[in-house]
Simulated scan of single mutants.
Amino acid sequence: MKKLLMIAAFGTFMFAGVTGEGHHADHWSYSGNMGPQHWGDIDPKFRMCALGVNQSPIDMDRFVDAKLPKLKITYAGIAKEVVYNGHTIKVTTLGKNEVVIDGKPFMLMQFHFHTPSENKIAGKQFPMEAHFVHKSKDGEYLVIALMFKEGRKNSALQKVLNDLSTEVGKKRMLREMFNPGDFFPRKLDYYRYDGSFTTPPCTEGVRWIVLKNPVEASKEQIAMMHEIMHDNSRPVQPLKARVILK
């Protein structure tokens, strides 16, 4: 059932939406007095949500041309289990799914979704975004962000939807396990920037890779995802002194 996916692409350089998905849904929210503008006050552990200077997501509109190294992705594992955790629809993975950035290997831990997209590209927001969350042995994080646009039915996404429970916290094994790389577009050109988790605790020091080319999902599939997750996107954060490499 294992499948080897070897991907090489040019471009420079990305955890959990990125994510503090371990917290229960009632600890923070996307609206009201527990919404993003209040995250930094909810818990001292979340103070970076208010005080951080390299926060995510962002509107990528300040680009610098860079000679980016090849992006090497070797996914030889599977997407295994799906759960709606009250914040996002998350899929856990199994096996060796590795990305090498800056000469350092990062292992895929999980991927999850946001409707609409959190990051924007030159002001454009997409109807959905997936975050593939990776971690290195020394505890550093990298996220690959993938945008979705309306179009043809997405077969990998449908395998997730087929076994998804709308009950918060109810995990289900995927009957049709698949390689996580099945989501990726053929061309892996990307943008790179330094950012943070997009959910509490908003930890900084996260490498972000945002793929330039979106993939398609049907209007019905995106609507189903949104019906469960609702609007679960943190507003874009100030770019400050950062630039986006392309």
Rank of each mutant, 00 (worst) to 15 (best):
N85H: 05
Y190L: 04
K149H: 05
K246D: 02
I73W: 01
R47V: 12
V160T: 14
N85F: 08
Y193L: 10
K80T: 14
F111K: 04
E204Q: 15
K120P: 15
S155N: 05
V133G: 12
K2A: 15
G22M: 09
S31D: 12
M177R: 14
M60I: 09
P36H: 00
G95N: 08
D163E: 15
A16L: 08
R175E: 12
T198P: 00
K171Q: 03
M173T: 12
S29D: 14
E21W: 11
L51S: 15
K80E: 15
M225D: 02
Y191P: 05
N232E: 12
A76P: 00
A25D: 13
T88H: 08
R172K: 10
T92Y: 15
D231W: 08
I144P: 07
N54E: 11
T74S: 10
N54K: 13
G20C: 03
A79V: 10
G195C: 05
L68S: 07
N179G: 06
T74Y: 03
A8Y: 14
K2Y: 14
I121A: 10
R47S: 14
F10Y: 02
N97H: 06
G95T: 14
P69W: 07
Q158Y: 03
G20K: 01
H134I: 03
E129G: 08
V82S: 07
K135P: 05
F46N: 02
A156K: 15
D102F: 04
L71F: 00
P127V: 12
K96G: 01
G205R: 08
N33H: 09
G205L: 06
